[in-house]
Design a protein around this nucleic acid. Structure first.
Length: 401
DNA sequence: GATCCACAGGAAATAGTGGCTT
DNA sequence: AAGCCACTATTTCCTGTGGATC
């Protein structure tokens, strides 16, 4: 009598994890120019000078994080090799949904010895947190590189971005040196910063372009070589994934997701060949999943506003003005059984946010006395897919606690 | 050129949450 | 327990806009 899983073998994978989210490749392909620029910006750190601040822009899945990890670990390795150099401390924070205070707190905790208690979540003022951070930095000495990932999610980042580059000049720190590395996938974020911050902080702007099909092909081939056992034919699937992802959003993440899911389907069918057909069958599901995750990250009312735009746009088959969004939003909220927000301004706030995040396209309209000035909104994606994604989200979260 | 529409956009107030210090 | 403090989301209140119309 065999066990349930007895006949299951991993027929096609050698190392599936290289196709999974969060895998850090040991070599970075197709980003040579960016790496070179990065390296150049950081060389000061090796010679005990204050490093330049760096800002990285580029859409999700174009290698910002992977390149950062790679370059910084190389930098640290090199600093160790030359023991004349100051120690280099790298600290990473994800600013997603965080405030300046909690970001600073996170940095403080990272610099504290591991046995020390962590800095209070609430209570001290932001200035207290900064003070503590400066003390820690000085204590450790050397050069501190702070990586602020998703920095555009920070509400009111100006104080943070203004404080740091000046910490030394203002005498807050004495021994230590600081460099900031900001990462953002939001190009408009750049314009929301005050000009004084821009000039000091963006000493180096490295912009990551999206991958084209041939670049994606290179990356996928490399991953596939390690992910699959010999004798598995993935060539046609790779071309299909590369072509599709290049046309869609140029992200390596998407291309890799596609390949992985397609390979899973092939495996299930007992095939040793992953084909373009397999890619085709998973394409819609992968897309929908990615969109659903992005939407699910938004707050409830932001989601409802987005859904309202989509539904009204479907009904009118044209971009929707703000007040019509509001009406539809109230209906949508009621339909799902939620209380709705009452002010037009709230809707405007959410629409603005959604626009900044790339969910919505905005256009101006001004009909003078016959209608005044207003914005028109439309979703930057397929209306149907969006509505379906929203319905799925509602179904998987029947209650909110 | 003044006026007017229908909002946009910014500042500040308010409400609610949660946690610290004393 | 009282008094702070910070954060978020929302609302209130205000001034500003740009083009069509008078």
């Amino acid at each position: 009598m065999g066990g349930l899983f007895e006949d299951v073998e991993d027929e096609i994978y050698r190392e599936k994890r290289v196709l999974k989210e969060g895998h850090q490749p040991e070599k970075i392909l197709e980003r040579d120019a960016e790496i070179e620029e990065y390296k150049h910006a950081l060389t000061d750190a090796l010679f005990g000078r204050s490093p330049d601040n760096i800002f990285l822009f580029g859409k999700a899945g174009v290698g910002k994080t992977a390149v950062t990890n790679y370059v910084l670990s190389e930098l640290q390795a090199e600093a160790q090799r030359r023991d004349t150099a100051d120690p280099i401390h790298v600290t990473k924070v994800n600013c997603n949904n965080q405030s300046v205070y909690s970001t600073v707190r996170h940095l403080v905790n990272s610099l504290r010895p591991s046995d020390a208690s962590s800095f209070p979540k609430k209570g001290p003022s932001t200035a207290d947190a900064f003070e503590e951070l400066y003390a820690r930095m000085d204590e450790l000495g050397g050069t501190h590189l702070f990586v602020l990932d998703e920095i555009d999610h920070l509400s009111d980042p100006d104080p943070l971005l203004y404080e740091f580059p000046r910490a030394r000049a203002n005498g807050h720190i004495d021994r230590a040196k600081v460099g900031l590395i900001g990462i953002s996938n939001n190009y408009t974020f750049r314009n929301t910063l005050s000009s004084k911050v821009k000039s000091t902080l963006m000493e180096h702007e490295i912009s990551f372009s999206t991958y084209d099909a041939s670049e994606l092909q290179t990356i996928l081939s490399d991953r596939a070589q390690r992910a699959f056992i010999d004798g598995i034919d993935v060539e046609t699937a790779i071309s299909a994934c590369a072509a599709f992802a290049a046309k869609d959003d140029g992200s390596a993440r998407q291309a890799i997701d596609l390949l992985r899911e397609a390979a899973d389907v092939a495996q299930k069918n007992g095939s040793t060949m992953v084909t373009a057909d397999h890619v085709e069958t998973v394409r819609e599901e992968v897309n929908r999943g990615q969109l659903r995750d992005k939407i699910d990250d938004q707050t409830l009312h932001a989601q409802l506003v987005l859904e309202a735009v989509a539904r009204q746009q479907r009904a009118d088959s044209k971009p929707v003005r703000t007040t019509r969004v509001q009406d539809r939003y109230e209906a949508v909220a009621n339909a799902w059984g939620y209380d709705h927000l009452t002010s037009l301004k709230s809707i405007q706030n959410h629409l603005d946010d959604l626009h900044m995040l790339g969910f919505l396209i905005r256009s101006d309209e001004n009909k003078g006395q016959q209608g005044g000035r207003s914005y028109r909104w439309e979703v930057d994606m397929t209306v149907e897919t969006l509505i379906e994604a929203r319905e799925e989200i509602e179904q998987q979260t029947p209650s909110i606690d």
